[in-house]
Design a protein around this nucleic acid. Structure first.
Lengths: 199, 199
DNA sequence: CAGAATACGAAACTGGTGTTGCGTAATTGC
DNA sequence: GCAATTACGCAACACCAGTTTCGTATTCTG
């Protein structure tokens, strides 16, 4: 069933998101101007605001499009599985960190998105749903390893995954420390020593 | 040695910070308006900008004033010491989370401060120095426990503290899950099982 | 007392977000 | 074809952050 009135120009969405992505990754979140996006896209500002009610919503849409689907390839070795899983999270974080041509310890766009989720209930709700889904995958991974005897029977899966994912976010958003594969491996080792079943 | 010209009115700083604190905790970060603060404080906007170059800087000053000094009372039991230490971090996070009259999972002002640190190099630098100091205290705590034989000799102290502090921030800023004392205890248990020296 | 240096207040200004009102264009249902 | 409905462009607008200019006030130095 088609809606009643004049249909939206679907090309606008794609064009706007591409232009906004260019701006946000070239000049950062502050350098992203709605007026400029509208002008470069050749549309009126009202057309943008009909689709994304705030600049935050547009920025979220831009970043969401760049995050590839987060599928996990399970090997059966919990250490390798966790490292692979966390490495994808780290990659997404480093991508956002690099936005705006920034280097060094700054959290870049990642920090702005955290604030956007805090400002707008709908963005926060959407983001938390995404995180909940990702957390569920991580918890399932841990749970299966527990069942097959790789991990302690009485472990706290929620706390364990919080520790792992949390450490990555903590370094990117708070301390500014680097997050590379070597660190992810150190992290998993640190968390698993003792969560591995004792012999 | 006194500076040359007319001295600053020190009462202004206090009055402005108090009014800004009222606004930010009543209406949240967005509800904090520089014009309104200036009007309520009975000063010109230029006087505010002479002290805090941006709204972000003012907000940081407001929150910084509310964070009590983070002194640690060491008992000698690493589990208790970590719980106490993390509980203070959690308290500070929950205080910021409640700002703006918000309830529920929102990160509140905490999220805005992360973005502020990402936007302004000086704020970011200052914040990272604070975090580095706090991290050093945590690492020293862990190190002393390691030396006296409570913890594994080959543990990765940096990763361990990242895991603990990171999980708290992760829940407040990202997943929106609650962070109370019960969770802190679960967290420390999860991280220490296996970082404790094996008998 | 004279002059330099700094703080303050008032007002106008720039630029950006987000809104509103209105005329026009495209589509569906009758 | 005609009415209802929705999208679009244009322009003006309100609001806020941050800047600039200028006149005045307060302090230190000589």
């Amino acid at each position: 069933m088609t809606p009643r009135g004049r249909p939206r120009d679907t090309q606008v969405d794609e064009r706007v998101l591409r232009i906004a992505a260019d701006l946000i990754f070239e000049r950062g979140y502050t350098g992203l101007s709605i007026d400029e996006v509208a002008e470069q896209a050749g549309v009126a500002k009202t057309t943008l605001y009909r689709r994304w009610p705030t600049k935050d919503h547009l920025a979220v849409a831009v970043v969401a499009r760049l995050q590839a689907d987060h599928e996990i390839d399970e090997t059966g070795d919990i250490r390798a599985d966790l490292v692979n899983n966390l490495d994808k999270i780290a990659a997404a974080l480093n991508r956002m960190r690099a936005a705006g041509g920034r280097e060094g310890p700054s959290a870049g766009v990642a920090g702005e998105l955290v604030a956007a989720a805090a400002r707008h209930d709908d963005i926060g709700k959407l983001a938390r749903e995404q995180y909940a889904e990702r957390n569920a995958l991580g918890l399932a991974l841990i749970e299966r390893a527990r069942v097959r005897g790789e991990l302690r029977a009485d472990l706290d899966a929620e706390a364990l995954f919080d520790q792992l994912a949390g450490a990555l976010y903590y370094r990117v958003l708070i301390t500014g420390a680097p997050v590379d594969r070597a660190y992810v491996e150190r992290l998993v080792s640190s968390a698993l020593e003792g969560n591995l079943t004792c012999q």
